[in-house]
Design a protein around this nucleic acid. Structure first.
Lengths: 193, 193
DNA sequence: TAAATAATGTGATGTATGTCACGCATATTT
DNA sequence: AAATATGCGTGACATACATCACATTATTTA
């Protein structure tokens, strides 16, 4: 049950068996049905989730009711409203399951305790947060510089597996365009072929 | 010369004097004139910079020649093309000085060596990178959800000091609108008062 | 202090994308 | 199997913002 987590950590750093055995004890398992919320706007995000199976999304809903997806998370990724998790303030994100999911949950106090006790774990999280930051910065600049078509092409190239698993409506609200615009972009691409 | 760095680290974690004395030896100092490049697109980003004095920006230039600012960094902040710094690949960002600046520079091998040797430093960087990620995620969602006027108002509220120090052209290219649009937004706000 | 450069404002016009409305096909639920 | 919800495509029209062009005012720099 912790094979994937062990594999992901080992890809970045080495944690000895004893330390990892301890780390494992800090998690609780949780399963969610498709469409079920992991977190709703306004809740305090008590847990960070490691995705063992399935697919989640985090998103905001603006005053007009439009959804804007911040992140998809499939097997091997972490998901939370980081801001709420760190500060204990109400979350501005919603997180829900796009497929049936199996999660490993850890609270902030236990997470911090583990990192403090095991420097290799702090190293692991520093690295993955850093990579996440780099990816988010690139996405921000692309969202400022690129047209709808360029964004869609880049998404296809960057997350080919994800395109198979989520609806176009989801892709559109990740890219920051309407589903109608995405539909037209797709037709233009198809016509040109 | 290292007072500000010491203060910033102490605000997050505690590093004993001996460790900090060692950490200090890993930096070289650098001064830049206004408008001088710290890094140009295509260069390898060999150094991460801690800003002791002055103001920098990082930005991309798209095919049409428009600039998109990723970040401003004033006293107490870190600046680099993180992606290039971490991977040793050519940077896609430009970084230049908006004022005369004094920087403390550290290479990646020395930075990593310090973090490996001193867990409190890895903790410090994990925290600041994490905060940076949270801020970048919020900005990304806001850039998708908000109008030009809302973005400008939020910028005013979030970075009041920065508005004093940079031109409107810079603010506009941070917000992802043209300088003309920003000028019109400002007039509407003034007229309404 | 003159000349050059950069910053800002503003009108006229263009355009990518959003909004609204509807039809059809495919899942999902009862 | 019927009823309902969900996803996707597409036309007509609206609009926020970009682009282009030029004038005015600050700020450098020679």
């Amino acid at each position: 049950m912790f094979e994937l987590l062990h594999k992901k950590i080992s890809a970045v750093t080495s944690v000895n068996e004893e330390d990892f055995d301890y780390f494992k004890t800090l998690f609780v398992q949780k399963k969610l049905r498709k469409r079920q919320y992991f977190l709703q706007e306004g809740d305090i995000c008590k847990y960070q989730a490691f995705v063992e199976q399935g697919l989640l999304r985090s998103y905001t809903v603006d005053e007009k009711g439009s959804e804007h997806i911040l992140q998809f998370a499939s097997e091997g990724w972490w998901m939370a409203d980081l801001s709420s998790y760190l500060t204990n303030e109400p979350s501005f994100l919603n997180v829900d399951a796009l497929e049936e999911v199996e999660l490993l949950l850890i609270t902030k106090p236990l997470w911090e305790h583990a990192m403090q006790k095991i420097p290799a774990l702090e190293h692991y999280f520093r690295i993955i947060i850093q990579n996440h930051l780099v990816a988010t910065q690139k996405r921000l600049l692309q969202s400022l510089a690129e047209t709808a078509e360029e964004k869609y092409n880049r998404f296809l190239a960057t997350y080919p597996e994800c395109v198979q698993r989520v609806s176009q409506h989801m892709v559109a609200s990740y890219l920051g365009v309407t589903r109608e615009t995405l539909s037209r972009v797709r037709r233009q691409l198809a016509d040109r072929k």
